[in-house]
């Protein structure tokens, strides 16, 4: 059977800080039967500048993004936030721009990883085991921009021995917010601490999240608190659980480029 093609969207944080997340996603997608490709000309979707109000700069970067992906077909990325940027905000950013149509079409072809797997009915391809309790943190933009629901939970529940929990009540932001966490570090720190406390109260062995921004922020917080609570991207978690039938400590930054 000929495998379907997907094009990797590697957000700037993954490219620059956490390349292992990109490889983990590529491996999981390959195991789900996809033919994975990557175009190294891509750098960033433009969201950091867009969210900070610098739309001219955001547009100049987004133009490159659109050029890189215009013939890509199906695009999958490990970030709900970046996916939402393209899908929900490109039409506005490219308003009265000659590439508007292409940019809008991109939004229809780009998917966040968990959304993609569920949409493609590939849940049965997820098989693995890991013993422990995992807390799931879905990014705000996955929830409120992409309107994702239980996709991530359904995927995690495929892993034998893994007990998945979510903090009760309204979903609360971890405090990342891009430039926000730089401009208002003290606020972001406390928000991160509050979010982590919710997971700690649930007695989780690992926090699994679907957005590299949240992960970066929460890892900074655990490091600042000298805490050994691993924060993993869902793709890293899957990669390890599917790989090793592991029942031990999940490692942050475990997987290098072995594809």
């Amino acid at each position: 059977m000929k495998s379907e093609k997907v094009s990797l969207f590697i957000p700037c944080i993954v490219d620059q800080v956490y390349p292992e997340m990109g490889f983990a996603m590529a491996r999981v997608l390959r195991r789900c039967g996809y033919d994975v490709s990557y175009d190294p000309r891509q750098t960033c979707c433009g969201q950091p500048a867009f969210n900070a109000g610098h739309w001219d700069q955001a547009l100049s970067v987004a133009e490159v993004f659109v050029d890189v992906f215009k013939d890509a077909g199906c695009i999958v990325g490990p970030s709900g936030s970046c996916t939402a940027m393209v899908r929900n905000y490109y039409p506005r950013l490219f308003e009265s721009h000659p590439k508007r149509e292409t940019a809008t079409r991109l939004g229809e072809n780009i998917f966040e990883f968990t959304e993609f797997l569920v949409r493609e009915n590939k849940l049965d391809r997820i098989r693995g085991s890991w013993k422990g309790r995992a807390g799931y943190h879905m990014s705000c933009h996955s929830l409120r921009e992409l309107r994702l629901g239980d996709e991530g939970l359904r995927i995690l529940k495929r892993i034998d021995g893994c007990e998945v929990v979510e903090p009760a009540g309204e979903h609360v932001c971890c405090g990342f917010g891009g430039v926000f966490s730089v401009k208002h570090e003290a606020i972001a720190e406390t928000m991160g601490g509050a979010r982590l406390a919710q997971f700690r109260a649930l007695g989780v062995d690992v926090v699994v999240a679907n957005d590299p921004g949240c992960i970066l922020h929460m890892r900074q917080e655990t490091a600042a608190r000298d805490e050994r609570l691993p924060i993993l991207h869902l793709v890293e978690f899957l990669d390890q659980a599917m790989d090793r039938a592991s029942d031990g400590y999940m490692e942050q930054c475990a997987g290098g480029p072995r594809c």
Binding site: V14, Q16, V17, P19, F23, P40, E189, Q220, A224, P257
Partner: peptide, 24 residues
């Protein structure tokens, strides 16, 4: 500072991917 600025990885995903694909 309480928090460290996140450290950039030694190589970018793009660099690693290229190397990796060549050896595949």
């Amino acid at each position: 500072k309480r928090r460290r600025v996140p450290r950039l990885s030694r190589k970018t995903f793009a660099q690693l991917w290229e190397k990796n694909e060549q050896s595949r």
